[in-house]
């Protein structure tokens, strides 16, 4: 009995001296870089920085987190261009960097170099050498919602290499694409070189109210399919998981891109095919 009492006291003593876990609430400032180079189009690089968890987000802060004073360079095998800062109130961030001369080419590699004071952040990517081909798009009536229609897509791919396709849609009147469900496929799942699926629309931002997954009648939409390398596809998959913000699922929540330096950054090339269609 004495031994048990001694052991109990020892336990209480140990527990009182227990050094608790690190509170983990350390915030490290980082740049957020989203750079893309599309075939036959000018590269676009958006740079912001992160904020502490307790920061109040208002229009002033949204302006402040945009990085406007960086030097952004894109280097191809035979050209280098310093990107120009563009102001556009229709998109966020309202300021971004865009080339005026250099355009993406199929199968080419490109380097990105961002310099901010004495901080240098660099990444390298390539544009896949195959542009996706939308074979057809069509709509079907929905049993539940008669005002909207379901979108279907058929893709064709007869190339031997493994391609990663991501799907997007946007109303013709809006500038930015939002991902669909399913969000991506790779061509290993194609049957007889064809892939056929329904595409459901998602909201543009995770702070918007969820809307219908179907498409309103008589409103023209643009459907885009982008081929990118595996690294970029993995990044955007992880990004989708994080943006869904489902705390029920744990695991590693670190988003790792391909831009080195004090940043979370992705620099990726895409070869895309877009089509306009109106659900009637």
């Amino acid at each position: 009995m004495r031994v048990i009492l001694l052991l109990s006291l020892l336990t209480l003593f140990l527990s009182c001296n227990n050094k608790d876990l690190d509170d983990g609430l350390s915030y490290t400032p980082k740049f957020i870089i989203d750079g893309n180079i599309e075939v036959d189009d000018f590269p676009v690089v958006k740079i912001t920085h992160n904020i502490p968890i307790n920061a109040k987000i208002d229009s002033a802060l949204l302006e402040q987190i945009i990085i406007r004073w960086a030097k952004v360079e894109v280097v191809s095998k035979d050209d280098t261009e310093v990107l120009t800062l563009i102001h556009d109130k229709k998109v966020f961030p309202y300021y971004y960097y865009k080339a005026r001369r250099l355009k993406g080419k199929l199968g080419e590699s490109y380097k990105l170099k961002v310099t901010y004071n004495d901080i240098i952040m660099e990444g390298e990517t390539y544009i896949p050498d195959h542009r996706p081909e939308i074979d057809s798009l069509w709509f079907k009536d929905n049993k539940v919602d008669t005002m909207r229609k379901e979108l279907y897509i058929r893709l064709f791919d007869d190339t031997p290499q493994l391609d990663y396709y991501r799907f997007y849609t946007r109303p013709d009147s809006i500038m930015e694409f939002s991902p669909t469900t399913p969000k991506f496929t790779d061509d290993s799942k194609f049957i007889n070189q064809y892939f056929e699926s329904s595409l459901y629309r998602n909201r543009l931002s995770n702070f918007e109210e969820p809307g219908s997954t179907l498409f309103l009648r008589d409103v023209p939409i643009i459907v885009k399919v982008s081929n990118m390398n595996k690294q970029a596809n993995d990044f955007w998959n992880k990004y989708q998981e994080l943006s869904a913000n489902i705390p029920l699922f744990g695991g590693n929540k670190l988003l790792q891109g391909n831009v080195s330096g004090p940043c979370i950054g992705i620099w990726y090339g895409t070869a895309s095919h877009s089509q306009l269609i109106t659900p009637n």
């Binding site: 915030y27 904020i51 502490p52 961030p93």
Partner: peptide, 10 residues
């Protein structure tokens, strides 16, 4: 510990 904006999402 922090937040950031990327591709229209927070």
């Amino acid at each position: 510990v922090g937040r950031y904006f990327l591709n229209n999402n927070i």
